[in-house]
Protein backbone atom coordinates (compact mmCIF):
# COMPACT_ATOMS: atom_id res chain seq x y z
CA UNK A 1 0.00 0.00 0.00
CA UNK A 2 2.48 2.64 0.91
CA UNK A 3 6.15 2.53 0.11
CA UNK A 4 8.18 3.97 2.94
CA UNK A 5 11.95 4.17 3.12
CA UNK A 6 14.02 5.46 6.02
CA UNK A 7 16.73 8.03 5.41
CA UNK A 8 19.01 10.28 7.41
CA UNK A 9 18.44 14.03 7.62
CA UNK A 10 21.45 15.99 6.30
CA UNK A 11 20.08 19.52 6.38
CA UNK A 12 16.89 21.40 7.17
CA UNK A 13 15.53 24.52 5.53
CA UNK A 14 12.18 25.59 6.96
CA UNK A 15 9.57 22.99 6.00
CA UNK A 16 11.94 21.05 3.80
CA UNK A 17 14.81 18.70 4.59
CA UNK A 18 17.60 17.12 2.57
CA UNK A 19 17.61 13.43 3.38
CA UNK A 20 20.20 10.80 2.48
CA UNK A 21 18.95 7.37 1.48
CA UNK A 22 22.12 5.29 1.30
CA UNK A 23 23.81 7.53 -1.25
CA UNK A 24 20.73 9.06 -2.85
CA UNK A 25 19.62 12.46 -1.61
CA UNK A 26 16.15 13.86 -1.86
CA UNK A 27 14.30 16.90 -0.57
CA UNK A 28 11.41 15.92 1.67
CA UNK A 29 8.56 18.06 2.95
CA UNK A 30 8.21 18.24 6.73
CA UNK A 31 4.51 19.25 6.80
CA UNK A 32 3.26 15.91 8.12
CA UNK A 33 5.86 14.64 10.59
CA UNK A 34 4.63 15.43 14.10
CA UNK A 35 7.89 15.75 15.99
CA UNK A 36 10.73 18.24 15.67
CA UNK A 37 13.25 16.86 13.20
CA UNK A 38 16.96 17.56 13.56
CA UNK A 39 19.99 16.92 11.41
CA UNK A 40 21.12 13.32 11.97
CA UNK A 41 17.61 12.00 12.64
CA UNK A 42 16.10 9.17 10.65
CA UNK A 43 12.78 9.88 8.93
CA UNK A 44 10.47 7.68 6.90
CA UNK A 45 9.67 8.97 3.40
CA UNK A 46 6.35 8.50 1.67
CA UNK A 47 5.64 10.35 -1.61
CA UNK A 48 8.18 13.05 -0.84
CA UNK A 49 6.90 13.71 2.68
CA UNK A 50 8.52 12.70 5.96
CA UNK A 51 5.73 10.80 7.72
CA UNK A 52 7.60 9.70 10.82
CA UNK A 53 10.74 10.55 12.75
CA UNK A 54 12.32 7.26 13.81
CA UNK A 55 14.18 7.81 17.06
CA UNK A 56 17.65 6.21 16.59
CA UNK A 57 17.38 4.31 19.85
CA UNK A 58 14.17 2.70 18.61
CA UNK A 59 15.97 1.44 15.51
CA UNK A 60 18.59 0.03 17.83
CA UNK A 61 15.99 -1.39 20.18
CA UNK A 62 14.16 -3.22 17.42
CA UNK A 63 17.47 -4.62 16.26
CA UNK A 64 18.39 -5.63 19.79
CA UNK A 65 14.94 -7.12 20.21
CA UNK A 66 15.37 -9.28 17.14
CA UNK A 67 18.90 -10.23 18.13
CA UNK A 68 17.67 -11.30 21.53
CA UNK A 69 14.63 -13.15 20.18
CA UNK A 70 16.58 -14.99 17.62
CA UNK A 71 19.74 -15.98 19.36
CA UNK A 72 19.68 -19.18 17.40
CA UNK A 73 22.58 -20.98 19.01
CA UNK A 74 21.30 -24.24 20.47
CA UNK A 75 17.76 -23.01 20.94
CA UNK A 76 14.96 -25.42 20.09
CA UNK A 77 11.91 -24.31 18.18
CA UNK A 78 9.58 -24.27 21.19
CA UNK A 79 12.07 -22.37 23.33
CA UNK A 80 12.42 -19.94 20.50
CA UNK A 81 8.68 -19.51 20.30
CA UNK A 82 8.58 -18.67 24.00
CA UNK A 83 11.38 -16.14 23.57
CA UNK A 84 9.73 -14.53 20.58
CA UNK A 85 6.44 -14.31 22.44
CA UNK A 86 8.09 -12.67 25.38
CA UNK A 87 9.97 -10.21 23.26
CA UNK A 88 7.03 -9.20 21.15
CA UNK A 89 4.99 -8.69 24.30
CA UNK A 90 7.83 -6.59 25.70
CA UNK A 91 7.80 -4.47 22.59
CA UNK A 92 4.11 -3.86 23.02
CA UNK A 93 4.50 -2.90 26.65
CA UNK A 94 7.04 -0.27 25.74
CA UNK A 95 4.34 1.80 24.05
Amino acid sequence: MCLGVPGKVLAIDGMSATVDFFGVRKELRLDIVDEPVSVGDYVLNHVGFAIRRIPPDEVQETLALFDQILDVSGAKADLMAADVRGEIAAAKHKE
Partner: peptide
Protein backbone atom coordinates in the same frame (compact mmCIF):
# COMPACT_ATOMS: atom_id res chain seq x y z
CA UNK B 1 -4.42 -5.38 18.98
CA UNK B 2 -0.65 -5.82 19.09
CA UNK B 3 1.97 -3.57 17.58
CA UNK B 4 5.18 -5.24 16.37
CA UNK B 5 6.27 -2.15 14.44
CA UNK B 6 7.01 0.04 17.47
CA UNK B 7 9.88 1.82 15.71
CA UNK B 8 7.27 3.60 13.59
CA UNK B 9 3.77 3.13 15.02
CA UNK B 10 2.35 4.52 18.27
CA UNK B 11 -1.05 3.99 19.84
CA UNK B 12 -2.35 7.49 19.08
CA UNK B 13 -0.63 7.94 15.74
CA UNK B 14 0.13 11.32 14.26
CA UNK B 15 -2.56 13.56 15.76
CA UNK B 16 -1.69 16.64 13.72
CA UNK B 17 -1.86 14.62 10.50
Amino acid sequence: VANVYPRCVTKEGNLAA
